[in-house]
Nucleic acid binder design. Structure first.
Lengths: 245, 245
DNA sequence: TGCTGTTATTTATACGACAAATAAGGGAAG
DNA sequence: CTTCCCTTATTTGTCGTATAAATAACAGCA
């Protein structure tokens, strides 16, 4: 019998607001890490015994995993991990687990390939539908970026605030869903691009987007935003998937 | 005391594979319908009593709703419905409930504003990364559309298969997530556009996309796909949000 | 060999009890 | 009368046990 079978998944104290959420986090992270690609997913009784919690807690955690598309349960057959294509990648938990799992250049590229589709259109929609509050938020983000260049503010937070404000200004609930995706993508992306090249985010390009939105010029906003993310994509080497990683 | 408080949410037999999923469906639909915008979300005990199920079933259903971002629970405070901005719109259940709730032109426009961002880029990526199997699937979808014009196949299914195949061919897991969104959007969108104009999907435009992908020409694929969805958008009247609806 | 009925395993459901958190109300002090 | 603190009640959180339902695996029979 394999000894690692009984190894605790997370060493320290359980994470989360309560036992159920801690269990959810532990199991979710284990699934995304690929722990159950070789061995079968344990039964409710095994999970409860291994982690020292009641079966109720176990079941509720598994039900939450089911709701996120990670697993599927049937009597006698047990609980099985679903193929990754069924996972809800835009769920914040799944997204977080995915990032903690492996941060690869491939993942970063996939992130930004999504951004290059979403954000230019969001900018165009913002130019059409953004109200005074939205414009104010966008402009404030830009000002913080400028302040960041002088060391008076956090440039990364400002950058994120700018992009999130545009997503919100699109007045489309589907675009608003990408706030978490873009935030995490930006947070990791910028850390990575700065490691390659010393430059921080291009404030002038961002200003061009803001100007176009304020001028109510959708196509100009779209092209300006495309340039920003296009730069990021070329910087991280958009091309054939890296076979070395 | 309001009498409708005790009115069963769903008349017929519970839906779903088991009691918990039936409960999930009933409660989820009720939340999205806005039933708890005026009255507070019931306590576990109330739900169990009203629907004649055990508290275990109730709790597991609520936990699934929590996982999808619809509600949040705290001791003594009870379970509260989260603002719609916190809902995971790309969850298939939430998406389905949203569609059944109210099918408005606004929703249809939001759908297609998303498609016009995603699908052209997906087509461009498909031209770069799609393998032989992907190309085959895309071509097969196109052939079925042509067969559909002659009444030999279902044009709607063929159309959906075509677009889904391109999403898959992008080789980007984030794009693959949109399969369900695009399927439902298309299924309702086409029914709506056909009601306006007698024409069915434009096979020639779709062929242009397929040709560009097979020719490995990303930018041509992008523009061709943009035309298809742009047509849909203008058809349903993309402009200021309809104030009459 | 192929069908059929039995058995064992695992999730599904129900019930009861107690713990923990906390909002609301009441009472004492100033 | 106001403020602060303590008590109390309500609701979710956790546990344990028991039983039902579904079904995969197996054994036995024709």
């Amino acid at each position: 019998m394999d000894v690692t079978e009984f190894e605790p998944l997370a060493p320290g104290p359980a994470q989360g607001r309560n036992l159920t959420h801690g269990m959810l986090d532990t199991l979710g992270r284990a699934i995304v890490t690929g722990r159950y690609e070789t061995r079968p997913f344990p039964t409710e009784a095994e999970i409860a015994k291994t982690h020292g919690v009641s079966r109720s807690v176990t079941r509720e955690a598994v039900k939450m995993l089911t709701a996120k598309g990670l697993v599927s349960a049937r009597p006698r057959q047990g609980t099985v991990v679903q193929p990754a294509s069924a996972w809800n990648l835009f769920d914040t938990d799944v997204l977080r687990w995915t990032l903690e799992r492996k941060f690869s250049v491939d993942l970063l590229r996939h992130f930004n390939q999504l951004r290059v589709a979403i954000e230019p259109e969001a900018a165009a929609l913002a130019a059409r539908f953004g109200d005074a509050d939205d414009i104010r938020a966008i402009r404030h983000g830009l000002e913080q970026m400028e302040a960041g260049e002088a060391g008076l503010a956090d440039p990364l937070d400002a950058d994120i605030a700018f992009h999130v404000a545009i997503l919100r200004a699109s007045k489309n609930p589907f675009y608003a869903q990408f706030q978490s995706v873009v935030s995490t993508a930006l947070r990791t992306s910028i850390r990575f691009t700065n490691r390659i090249k010393g430059r921080s985010a291009n404030v002038a390009d961002h200003a061009a987007v803001a100007d176009a939105i304020m001028a109510r010029d959708p196509s100009a906003a779209r092209t300006a935003m495309t340039r920003i993310i296009g730069d990021v994509l070329t910087l991280i080497g958009d091309g054939e998937p890296s076979s070395t990683d």
